[in-house]
Design a protein around this nucleic acid. Structure first.
Lengths: 338, 338
DNA sequence: TTCGCGGGTGGGAGCGTTCCCATCAGGTTG
DNA sequence: CAACCTGATGGGAACGCTCCCACCCGCGAA
């Protein structure tokens, strides 16, 4: 009791002395409405505090005016990785000014994946943003089969056919390693990202290319893959030091892993940058606060978020438009760790 | 073309040789269905790959099976503050196992607030989680007026009438200051949070109480309020040092501000903890990586997220249940900065 | 004058569900 | 044996909107 019934389009029509259809036309900005009718309708809307029922609209238009941002990660990463927050912020920026709502879906396990699959099959969103894709991720294939507009942040492989936006991981890594070479480092190891992700691959490839360009060896024993976590970075550093006690530089494929590496180096009494120089990737908040502050490859994460959103909106608007692959530049931020 | 029409409940009914209603009953788990009918329906559903249209369901039930998480913050904070990521993670955890979807809404300016208001008025969600509330935030009042189930993470004031979950900010701050006293510090300043937020107030109050309990002065000149940003922390530290060149400890109401304070102390050649001890609040990833690592008050942010979600689901389920105010404990994590 | 045309308008149908109610079979009761 | 219940079932109506189509009116052209 108390909460009086919400006005519907009928109420408004009656109040304005016009038909339902005319109200609908005003609502949807049709030009085929006389000025008087439009004014009457607008007055009625204001008096009644009418707000259209978007569920009813969705039922007939089969648009939902919402998109999903899917983060298929073990919970540990959202949180430690400022990356995701920045993407979210970018997406939200890209959505500003539209009426489109953002659904956030974390996929942690098999059950949640099944649930998401049903959700997407039911077309409860107009499009999907996929972040942090793995090579064998089932989602991109599903989305393509469903014909649901999709844009990836990152790519499954260099041959990614779907719309995607990524930063120049190869180039960024090369620049980082070149920087280490310029600083006179000669034994440069790398803590690589997961090898089932293109970011991992590409940054490793950049490391290799830079070393080869300089005529240096890029042996596999100088590579320790980890999982983008701090603890992973720490133990990767440990194993690198065991294999190459005399290494004098490390390129880590993320700041968080670099932070783990710093901790291990400190534990073993190595000075940074005097004994070992360290470069990270992301230029996240972590990089500014480590001891010493971390030289890092900056990637425009927020811009990635904004761009995938813009591409998605475009794809939703005009189906079957050409595929877009956007590459965003990185830049090296030099601090005290090198 | 190609994409064959999605099956509806009618298709399923025809296939199973039953009526619409029976299919609906099976879908909603009604016990008033014979075993044969149920089996036939389930088989038909499987064969057709039928997924119920939740929009149509929403229209008649007027439930949306979604909730909104509203973050009313200038974009700078989501991103620098691991707090929000942790809340999001907790909320997502709290939602696991339900069919409820999470809508994320960042409110950055007046326009976005208006848009959100319309959105909520249209009841496009079943309930709302509100994070980082300010004293004069218009949203809680609006939500109460709309009768939309709401739970706050934090509170507007100690007299908050709405459902809310918060951590023991007063107690945490007291513990931090007591710790500094035990370490023999005598001139303990504080970098306080925004004074239009209860978190700011409460942590300041904890600082005052601890000092008074110890018979120390807690003069206003030892208080420098800031805005939870790193830059704010830095300039607050600067003004504290101007006023009290001989202070030997600072309690900052957030890790990020503490990080700013550390930077300023270093710039001025003060050693931490030898000359000045520093305590932060949040025990975020930042605290572990500052130089030196930061002693900090840990608050169970993820648990806050989970708890507000549980309360909201409960409130949505059984309207008008008693109001809940949950207080979660904090704990001090001692590192090298004290 | 008649016809055609096009802007402005409103009613009916339909989107895919759930809910209310009527119906029906088969058993139990007095 | 009639009256009644009880469990299983299905059709109609409704949720609030958009879209199709028919309609009306006033105008200029034939």
């Amino acid at each position: 009791m108390g909460a009086t019934q919400r006005p519907t389009i009928k109420t408004v029509a009656a109040r304005a002395g016009v038909g339902r259809t005319t109200v609908s036309r005003v609502l949807n900005g049709s030009p085929l409405v006389s000025d008087e009718a439009r004014a009457a309708v607008q007055a009625a809307i204001a008096e009644l505090g009418y707000v259209p029922n978007s569920v009813a609209r969705s039922l007939v238009t089969s648009r939902t005016d919402s998109i999903a941002l899917v983060i298929p990660e073990s919970e540990s990463r959202l949180g430690s990785e400022p990356y995701f927050s920045a993407v979210i912020r970018g997406v939200s920026n890209g959505l500003a000014g539209t009426q489109i709502q953002l659904l956030l879906t974390l996929v942690r396990d098999r059950r949640e994946l099944d649930q998401l699959t049903r959700f997407l099959t039911a077309r409860r969103v107009d499009g999907v943003l996929l972040v942090s894709v793995h090579r064998d991720d089932p989602l991109p294939g599903l989305l393509e089969k469903l014909g649901l507009p999709t844009v990836l942040a990152g790519r499954r492989s260099p041959a990614e056919p779907l719309n995607h936006v990524h930063s120049d991981n190869v180039g960024g890594a090369r620049e980082a390693v070149r920087h280490l070479l310029e600083r006179g480092r000669t034994r440069i190891a790398t803590i690589a990202g997961p090898q089932d992700m293109d970011v991992g691959d590409s940054r490793l490839q950049g490391w290799r290319e830079a070393l080869r360009d300089a005529g240096r060896e890029a042996g596999e024993s100088l590579v320790a893959p980890a999982d983008f976590t701090e603890e992973g970075g720490r133990s990767a550093m440990r194993s690198l030091l065991e294999r190459h006690p005399r290494l004098d530089a490390v390129f880590a494929a993320s700041d968080v892993m670099a932070a783990g590496a710093l901790a291990e180096l400190r534990r073993q009494g190595r000075r940074v940058p005097d004994d070992v120089a360290v470069v990270g990737f992301d230029d996240s908040i972590v990089a500014r606060h480590t001891d010493p502050p971390l030289t890092s490859v900056r990637q425009p994460v927020e811009e990635i978020g904004r761009t995938i959103t813009e591409l998605l909106l475009q794809e939703i608007g005009e189906r079957g438009s050409a595929r877009h692959h956007v590459l965003l530049p990185t830049s090296l931020v030099v601090r005290d760790s090198t």
